[in-house]
């Protein structure tokens, strides 16, 4: 009878041992640290811009100080900035699209976009992937002016020696995105 009781106790101990790892896990602490409880904000002006009427295979540039990016002074850390752009879509016919070039060359319905900071020597191509906008991180209150260069696609057709897009007098719309992340 004694042996029986001992064996039952052993069984209970075994059962408890198998529970222990699971119970021990519940006491582990997960730490969630949130950096920067203040604000994270950048300002970009002007929001809208038009290159006006453009022709096939032509380069158009804005003023090199046309746009201004400012890190809001209320931000509490430095910021890394990136630039991207999208395909351009015809406002009146969304099936007519100019694809943003990935290699710096224009083509039929392929356009190229560059940007240049006011203090930069050369234009840098904008693609759909994140491209560093400012080589150094920007501090709260810093601002950076920049301009854009557009190379329109090659003509859809040529008639009488003149190049044409197949959507004459239409508006093409694209977006240039400035992204920011804590440095």
């Amino acid at each position: 009878m004694k042996l029986g009781i001992i064996t039952i106790l052993l069984a209970i101990i075994l059962a408890l041992i198998s529970c222990l790892p699971a119970m021990a896990q519940t006491s582990g602490n997960i730490t969630i640290t949130m950096t920067g409880a203040k604000e994270f904000s950048i300002n970009l002006t002007p929001a809208n811009w038009s290159f006006g009427t453009v022709s096939p295979d032509m380069t158009n540039e804005t003023d090199p100080t046309q746009f201004t990016l400012t890190i809001d002074p209320t931000s509490n850390c430095n910021v890394n900035t990136f630039i991207t752009a999208d395909d351009a879509v015809c406002v009146y016919d969304s099936t007519y699209v100019w694809t943003l070039s990935s290699d710096g060359n224009n083509g039929e319905r392929v356009y190229v976009l560059w940007f240049k900071g006011w203090d930069m020597g050369d234009y840098i191509q904008i693609t759909k992937e994140l491209t560093e906008f400012c080589s150094i991180s920007m501090a709260p209150g810093d601002s950076n002016q920049f301009g854009l260069r557009l190379l329109t696609p090659q003509p859809d057709f040529t008639k009488g020696g003149t190049d044409y897009f197949s959507v004459g007098n239409a508006t093409m719309q694209t977006h240039v995105t400035i992204s920011a992340v804590a440095a």
Binding site: Q25, G28, N29, I30, T31, I32, T33, M34, T35, G36, A37, K38, E39, F40, S41, N43, L44, T45, P46, A47, N48, D72, S75, C77, I178, V181, A182
Partner: peptide
């Protein structure tokens, strides 16, 4: 007045989660 691109902010700007065991969630 120059129109400004959407004026909004997000916080926090960085989140660090430590000691999150596989099988757990935060």
């Amino acid at each position: 007045f120059p129109a400004q691109a959407q004026n909004f902010s997000v916080s926090p700007m960085e989140i660090k989660i430590d000691n999150l065991s596989p099988g757990g969630e935060a």
